[in-house]
Design a protein around this nucleic acid. Structure first.
Lengths: 221, 221
DNA sequence: GCATATTTGTCCGTATGTATA
DNA sequence: CTATACATACGGACAAATATG
């Protein structure tokens, strides 16, 4: 059995195409605000319009597409307000994660491993991988809450953030300064110093938000 | 213009039927785990199966339905673990809301108004209304974050919680003890006493979670 | 501002695979 | 194991809304 009949489709066409389009969106293959024609997309992916519409419903509910009645589906174009909101969500959830951190939690080990991987990726100048690992690091942090719903919600805002990254030009240096910050944050948590960990997290989020906002404003001008 | 072309359908059939079925789910018109046949539902609501499938996608992504591949859509049947998870999410988000509370925020006025309404509803023995007002009170609390995404995410877990209520027998007394707790919580916030407010919130959430869990276990045996 | 073309929203019929009696 | 029921997915159709010239 390759697939347990868990809770949602793994083999469904809708699920597969959704994953494909989501990947394309996150890698920045589409322009922000670009219209996604039903007919064109359907034939391009070799599926029917009805099936594609279900995909659009899913991606719209995840904030990656924007659905306008009688006009169709458009690639989401997060603006400054959206970025600010995304980081507000991150702040609330991740502060909760830091406070929920219990020593010996498996997610902590995973965070150490991811931090180490990020170091080697930086040594290889593989910035794309550094970015992915950074995301995974913070996803693992939220796993400390042991809450499927918090993790799922966090995944949504992270996907939106990756959409923003994909719409920028140079994502390379965006994650560079944060490798070290992640490690120090992790050390605070390991030591059980919640106050210091919260401060480090806040510093990280503020710094990250500022650089994303700056890059976004640079892009639009 | 009655409808601004905002972001999502307001007049769409999918949106309308989704709202209808969501109302039915929340009022407990369906049994937990009950299968929702496409054919039957489609003819019952006078819509096509294609349209209904889009509705199912939406409600599944909101946690109100559970989609099983090749088996169809079922009414979500949240168990004890789900309730615990829901309250974990509430704790994280609402603690964030308390800490984000700024004096003079319009949401605070709304909370006062809702608390007052709840008092009169209790005087009228309108327990259904008391429950709704309690939900609205906590929704308003999250509005303190000024974060559309946090509010949307909070609405999702609240909808799931109402689904649980709808599946229980007597929801009447479930909200009674919390009217006073909401007021004292509000007083702490108004005074700017964040620590006391956090403690009051935690007391409320623990108490509420316990009673819901107890009622749930009573129902199943 | 109007006529036309395009696209979405919605429906129907049907074929195929999967699950269940 | 067979048969039935149902979800999945497709393609075509048409009205209504929108975009285009």
């Amino acid at each position: 059995m390759t697939n347990k009949p868990g809770q949602d489709d793994e083999q469904s066409l809708v699920a597969k195409i959704s994953a494909d389009i989501r990947r394309l969106l996150i890698s920045g293959e589409f322009k922000p605000g670009e219209k996604l024609s039903e007919q064109q997309m359907a034939s391009q992916f070799g599926i029917s319009r009805n099936t594609l519409r279900e995909v659009f419903r899913l991606l719209s509910s995840q904030g990656l597409l924007t659905h306008i009645p009688n006009r169709g589906a458009f690639v989401a174009a997060p603006d400054e307000a959206d970025v600010i909101d995304i980081y507000r969500v991150r702040s609330v959830i991740q502060k909760g994660a830091v406070q929920a951190a219990s020593p010996g939690h498996p997610a902590l080990a995973r965070m150490w491993a991811l931090a180490a991987e990020a170091e080697t990726a930086r040594a290889d100048d593989d910035w794309r991988r550094v970015g992915t690992l950074n995301m995974e690091f913070h996803r693992a942090m939220v796993e400390l809450c042991d809450s499927p719903r918090l993790s799922a919600g966090f995944d949504l805002v992270l996907a939106e953030l990756r959409l923003v990254f994909g719409q920028l030009e140079d994502t390379s240096h965006l994650h560079e300064p944060y490798i070290a910050l992640n490690v120090t944050l992790l050390e605070h948590m390991e030591r059980g110093d919640t106050v210091a960990a919260l401060a480090a997290l806040d510093a990280y989020l503020v710094k990250s938000e500022r650089s994303v906002l700056a890059a976004l404003q640079r892009r639009r001008g």
